[in-house]
Design a protein around this nucleic acid. Structure first.
Length: 379
RNA sequence: GAGGGCGUAGCUCAGUUGGUUAGAGCGUCAGUUUGUGGCACUGAAGGCCGGGGGUUCGAGACCCCUCGCUCUCC
């Protein structure tokens, strides 16, 4: 089986946007791409069939920290890996738990060796080091696995950001070493993506990009953004990192973002995105549509029998009405969470596909401008 | 017709022996959510306490009248 490959189909002037094709042992991923988040091996409220057929997801995410706690590597190995366990034959990417160093900051201690987490489930203590995280990801068996890093909070002091970045770099070497020492478990190749850190300091970001680029990985990720900094700052640092990461390798901006974040960052040369927003915000009644943003709980939708999103070529979004969706949310019905999640993910996947088509057609910049005005509106 | 019960936010109701700017749940409205511990969280609007009169320093509460709803009996 083969290492991940990335073929750049085209690039255009006046924008760093590009369209590409990533190939893993589980298939082809057309970029730019959005990857639904399925932390514990489940994209909340959405079945794998719905992800494939309705959402048209090409790759999904899992999380090393969460999957290690439940169901644990014994079950995953007995199942033959996460793909087999959850019934997903397309690509999978697992995050390393580096984000949990940030999001579960109250429950962990960082050391040179690694991070000791106290489980949010039962309080038990677990050491996550570059080595254990690589081992767990071997057992999970994702096609793309992430280096163990520290996602620094915003704002961070320069001295802390520098120290943390250097630790992340040392951990990266240990990740590569461990991976080289251990065989894959299920007969297909696992590809390690390093992660750029450096907080909101240009010299650190540049140094981190150069360090990461020197590893010559098959793809590279930008971490530590969209953690509370102003939107403009996020774009500024995304642009800086994209510029300093290899042209011919996929660039993955971790944890981003809103639909408009995606378009702006595609413009800056980003190829891969993941975010909980379409699912989490969907479950809270926020719908992203081709017309703009809807709070489906608002009374004004009570008698609006038009479809959820007439402009989106997705079956559920055409079939069910806004009024019915509102009713489901007001009534607290589970179906509302499902439909909102499927709709939002369908919209995200549609959006990146449209972006791709317009990059290839050479229209991306003008298409982006028109589209942003519409999809950012609050309806 | 007689007797009893009840009228407080849009709805359902809580308001101690009379004591500061009358509360809750739901609903309404708005906001937050970015490598998912938390189908979550935050906030706002909304009241001549059915009406009138009286007692009192002070009434949603006590007294009288009145209107409306409701139950039981005839």
């Amino acid at each position: 089986m083969a290492e991940l490959s990335f073929k750049l189909e085209t690039s255009i002037n006046h924008s760093a946007a590009r369209a590409g094709i990533i190939t893993t042992d589980h298939g082809v991923i057309q970029t730019p791409i959005f990857m639904p988040v399925g932390t514990v091996g489940s994209v909340k409220a959405v079945t794998q069939q719905q992800l494939k057929i309705d959402v048209q997801a090409q790759i999904m995410l899992g999380n090393t920290y969460h999957l290690n706690l439940r169901p644990g590597i014994e079950v995953l190995e007995a199942a033959g890996g996460l793909h087999q366990f959850i019934g997903w034959d397309r690509s999978i990417l697992t995050d390393s738990g580096g984000y949990q160093v940030f999001s579960l900051a109250a429950n962990r201690k960082i050391k040179e060796e690694g991070v000791v987490f106290q489980s949010h489930i039962d309080g038990s203590k677990h050491l996550f080091s570059p080595e254990t995280v690589m081992d767990i990801q071997r057992s999970i068996g994702a096609d793309i696995i992430m280096a163990f890093d520290e996602c620094t909070p915003y704002p961070s002091e320069y001295s802390y950001a520098k120290k943390s970045m250097e630790l992340t770099h040392r951990w990266l070497d240990r990740c590569f070493n461990r991976l080289a020492e251990t065989p894959d478990k299920y007969g297909y190749t696992q590809n390690l993506f390093p992660i750029v850190q450096g907080s909101t300091y240009k010299d650190l970001r540049k140094a981190s990009c150069e360090f990461i680029a020197s590893k010559n990985a098959v793809g590279n990720a930008i971490g530590g953004l969209s953690v509370g900094e102003p939107e403009e700052m996020m774009y500024e640092y995304t642009a800086l990192c994209a510029m300093h990461l290899p042209q011919l390798k996929p660039r993955y901006l971790m944890g981003v973002g809103t639909p408009w974040n995606l378009l702006e960052c595609i413009d800056l040369g980003i190829d891969m995105f993941d975010c909980v927003m379409p699912t989490r915000n969907g479950r809270n009644g926020m719908l992203f549509t081709t017309q703009g943003v809807i709070n489906i709980r608002n009374k004004k939708w009570a008698k609006d029998f038009s479809s959820i999103d007439p402009g989106l070529p997705a079956e559920h979004s055409q079939y069910y009405s806004k009024a019915y969706m509102r009713h489901l949310f007001v009534a607290g019905e589970i179906l509302g969470l499902q439909l909102a999640s499927i709709h939002n993910l369908s919209f995200y996947l549609w959006l990146v596909k449209e972006a791709r088509n317009n990059i290839i057609a050479g229209n991306f910049v003008s298409w982006k401008k028109e589209t942003l005005e519409i999809i950012k509106r609050r309806l």
